[in-house]
Simulated scan of single mutants.
Amino acid sequence: MTPDSKPQKVPAQEQKWPGTTSAMDPPPDHGEDNYTGRERLVGKRALITGGDSGIGRATAIAFAKEGADVAIAYLPQEQADAESTKEVVQSVGRRCVLLATDQRTEEANTRLAADAVAGLGGIDVLVSNAGFQMAHTGGIADFPSGQLEQVFETNVFATFWLTKALVPHLGPGSSVIITTSIQAYNPSEPLLDYAATKAALNNLMVNLAADLGPKGIRVNAVAPGPIWTPLIPSTFDAEKVASFGADTPLGRPGQPVEVAAAFVFLASDEASYVSGTVLGVTGGKAIF
């Protein structure tokens, strides 16, 4: 699992939100061919939100190659990417349950939790990864109506509601892993609302770790830096996309498979004494 480490320039491009994997140039690396499993998640059952593409897809593939069965949640308009992810997971002999869900209400998350438990016969790992962002360069004075609600409902509220719904089904040794971001530590002005949600998720993670630790449930977060996923060309303009990731010490955007390895570690028994922490995968940018 070693993507090309040389600095790579991403061509200028844009997509309509939420974007599709097939339209990306270059295609992102989800580990379909180069991730090697080592049986670290054998027998585990995982629900991964935003599992159709990007970091979620790579995590689903890595989990499957490590021996886990997975359920993936995704927006209904992302069905094609979800089906593609399912094909890869099944090709390595694991189950994949598809659960099209818009997570912006508590009822939707309650239903998602129930369907995931029913589909896999239980849940051992929750990866709350689904997220929404939309760059806005005009500042707060003309901030788009409704965007703040969408980004907080998708990123923060859904994580809270889904975790709440799944806790009765999680036993000792279970794990909750939340996708936060470098934006929580080094926020960009065009993403002021998104960055705020990621800081909130870091705080939520710490409190959940304290709350659920006595039950034997570990809670952690992964904070990616600039990762090449459909979210990028569908939420930034072409000029921004063309320079994406160039400001990291490694001089390039990361690939989804490079983040998936962090989720594998935190979900595995190797991380049995790791809880309440953030693992950064940022290309060299500091998180503190």
Rank of each mutant, 00 (worst) to 15 (best):
E189M: 12
A71S: 11
A165M: 08
Q13R: 08
Y35K: 11
S22G: 12
G173F: 06
T36C: 15
A12K: 11
A184V: 04
G254Q: 04
T137W: 15
Q8R: 13
T101E: 00
M24K: 00
S5G: 10
G284C: 07
V257S: 01
D52A: 15
G276I: 11
T163D: 06
A114H: 13
P224I: 01
L266P: 02
E32K: 04
Q15G: 13
L212C: 09
T21E: 15
I287N: 03
A158S: 15
T248V: 02
M134W: 09
A82C: 13
E32C: 03
K65I: 06
A68C: 12
T110S: 15
A200R: 08
E270M: 08
A221V: 13
S91P: 02
P226K: 00
Q183A: 12
Y185V: 13
A114N: 07
Q133G: 10
W161A: 12
K6V: 04
Q79I: 14
L75K: 12
A246G: 08
I48H: 01
E239C: 10
E106G: 04
I72R: 08
G31Q: 06
L192V: 12
S234R: 00
Y35P: 04
A209S: 05
A267P: 07
G251W: 04
G146C: 14
P26H: 00
P253V: 01
G139L: 05
A114V: 10
S128M: 09
D81V: 01
R218T: 02
G50Y: 14
P168D: 10
A221K: 14
G31F: 07
T235K: 01
P253T: 06
W17L: 13
